[in-house]
C-alpha cells in the first residue's frame, strides 16, 4: 500500500465532516410561517409602514402624554378593526383610507399641528380601524392565526417605536426641522398610494 501523503489526511477529515444529509433545522411549522408572515405584513406594505412610523413620530412631536397614549391606543383600536374584518362587515374605501392615513399624519407632522389630545387620539383611532381591518381580513387564511396576529402587532409596535426614536430629535432645533421634513416625506408616500388606490396612478 503506498504511503498516504500527510497533508491529505486533514483534508480528507475535513471533507468527511461535511454532512451529506440536509440539516432541516428550520422546518417552517405553522407557528413559524404565521409569525413570519405577520411580521412582514406591515413592513412590506409601504403604505402601512409609513403610517405606523408617523403615529410614533407624531406622538413624539406632540410630547407627553401623546407619546405613549397614541402607541398604546393604536393596537387596541386596530384589534377592533381586525374584528370588523373578521366578521365580514363591509368597510368601504379601506385602501384609500390606509393611504390617506400616511398623507394626513405626514402633513400634520410637517405643519407641526398640535390638536387637543382627544382629537389626536380619535384621528389615529379612526385610521387604526382601517389598518386593523386590512390585517384582520388576512387572519383566517394565516398558517397560524395567533402567530400571525402576534407578528403583525409586534411589527406595528416596533414601527411606532421607530417613529418615537426618530421623534427624539425634536429636542434639538435642527432635529425638529428634520422631523418635519420626515413628515413631509411620509405625506408624499401617502399621496402616491392614495392616487394609486383611486386609480389616478397605475
Amino acid at each position: 500500500m503506498p504511503p498516504v501523503p500527510s497533508k491529505s489526511l486533514p483534508l480528507a477529515a475535513l471533507l468527511a465532516a461535511i454532512p451529506l444529509a440536509p440539516a432541516l433545522a428550520h422546518t417552517g411549522s405553522g407557528v413559524a410561517i404565521g409569525l413570519q408572515s405577520g411580521l412582514l405584513h406591515p413592513i412590506t406594505g409601504a403604505d402601512h409602514l409609513v403610517a405606523m412610523v408617523a403615529v410614533g413620530l407624531w406622538g413624539a412631536q406632540l410630547g407627553a402624554p401623546a407619546i405613549w397614549v397614541l402607541p398604546i391606543t393604536f393596537p387596541l383600536v386596530m384589534a377592533v378593526g381586525g374584528l370588523i374584518g373578521l366578521a365580514g362587515v363591509p368597510l368601504p374605501f379601506v385602501e384609500p383610507v390606509v393611504a390617506l392615513s400616511g398623507l394626513a399624519l405626514g402633513l400634520l407632522i410637517a405643519l407641526h399641528v398640535r390638536p387637543p389630545l382627544w382629537a389626536a387620539a380619535v384621528l389615529v383611532g379612526v385610521f387604526a380601524i382601517f389598518h386593523g381591518y386590512a390585517h384582520g381580513r388576512e387572519l383566517p387564511g394565516a398558517a397560524d392565526p395567533t402567530a400571525y396576529a402576534v407578528g403583525f402587532v409586534v411589527a406595528t409596535g416596533l414601527l411606532h417605536l421607530t417613529g418615537i426614536l426618530i421623534g427624539v430629535l425634536v429636542a434639538w432645533p435642527a432635529g425638529a426641522r428634520l422631523v418635519r421634513v420626515c413628515g413631509a416625506a411620509i405625506g408624499c408616500v401617502g399621496l402616491y398610494f392614495l392616487l394609486a388606490s383611486v386609480g389616478v396612478l397605475s
Binding site: 398604546i72 387596541l76 384589534a79 374584528l83 386593523g132 392565526p145 396576529a149 402587532v153 409586534v154
Partner: peptide
C-alpha cells in the same frame, strides 16, 4: 409605559384571536 405598551399588544392579539373563534371558527 413600555410594559403597558406590551400589554396593549397582548390584548390586541387576544381580542383578534377571540374574534376569530366567533366569526371564523373553521379557519
Amino acid at each position: 409605559i413600555a410594559l403597558r405598551a406590551s400589554g396593549s399588544w397582548v390584548a390586541a392579539v387576544g381580542i383578534m384571536v377571540l374574534g376569530l373563534q366567533f366569526f371564523a371558527p373553521t379557519a
